[in-house]
């Protein structure tokens, strides 16, 4: 069976699971919506801090909701892989005459399709709640790019850990690591507003660059981040490099699993 066909079949299986296992998809959709609403509502006033790049809290926290959903949606692929390993489905897959890479790329394509669906729903809801894209279509595209990129990183990391641990021990590491990386960044407020130890950590955390990419089309036009190449390239580079690393980790771990 050729790689392209396997990728297609595994991607379809992943998408079909939305209908078969709605209990797994709906929490993944509810979480970003919940995060967007509660962060924007609780921290409504933070936009009044001098130097805050937008005057709408929903503009700041809608991308955070989407990015959290994308990151956890990505590592969620690791949970599915653990279940498939435990039920013996992976053993059957590995016996088929197909490339190992397609066993990573196929489910990844399915996950990215889910992330596009989640991002679209959250954006529509966000706009209904008052979010405004100051950067127009380009801003929307940057948000999708950041979400898909972060999800790819999460998926590679989740799959790699799943193939290494082969049981639910890996799940705790997946969730905790993503949680820490996301919150130790500019998730809640921009770098220029935070202070102390978090500022130091967030400056070097690549998630800050990816979050900045997601927000370039939502900050005020007067903000230096507004559709600025300086705010875009760092995020794209972080996505390219870390995706390559985590997907490489996933493929290597799968090969070790097969040995």
């Amino acid at each position: 069976m050729n790689t392209q066909r396997t990728v297609g079949i595994l991607a379809k299986r992943s998408i079909r699971n939305i209908r078969r296992l709605p209990s797994a998809f709906f929490p993944a959709l509810a979480m970003p919506i919940f995060n967007m609403i509660v962060f924007a509502g609780t921290f409504f006033a933070v936009t009044k801090i001098p130097g805050f790049p937008t005057d709408r809290s929903i503009n700041w926290y809608m991308p955070l909701g989407i990015m959290m959903g994308a990151a956890f949606g990505g590592v969620g692929l690791g949970f599915t892989a653990i279940r498939d390993i435990e039920t013996g489905f992976y053993d059957r897959l590995r016996m088929t005459p197909t490339s190992r890479t397609s066993l990573v790329i196929g489910p990844l394509v399915g996950t990215l399709t889910r992330i596009v669906m989640m991002t679209t729903i959250v954006i529509v809801l966000g706009i209904a709640l008052g979010a405004r894209f100051t950067g127009g279509v380009l801003g929307v595209l940057c948000l999708y790019a950041a979400a898909l990129g972060l999800s790819t990183i999460g998926a590679g990391w989740g799959l790699g850990l799943a193939f290494r641990f082969k049981d639910m021990r890996g799940a705790a590491i997946m969730q905790l690591s993503i949680f820490l990386v996301m919150f130790l960044s500019s998730a809640q407020v921009p770098l220029n507003v935070m202070s102390g130890w978090l500022h130091t950590v967030a400056r070097f955390n690549p998630a800050t660059n990816i979050l900045r990419l997601s927000r370039v089309g939502l900050v005020n036009e007067s903000s230096p981040d507004h559709l600025a190449w300086n705010s875009v390239w760092g995020g794209l580079l972080a996505i390219a490099l870390i995706s390559a690393l985590t997907l490489g980790f996933a493929v290597r771990s799968l090969q070790k699993l097969s040995d």
């Binding site: 921290f43 006033a45 809640q188 407020v189 102390g196």
Partner: peptide, 16 residues
Amino acid sequence: AALGSSAFSRAISLPG
């Protein structure tokens, strides 16, 4: 709490 103390240190001067 540690996260908030760094992220929202400037928020305490906001009205309210």
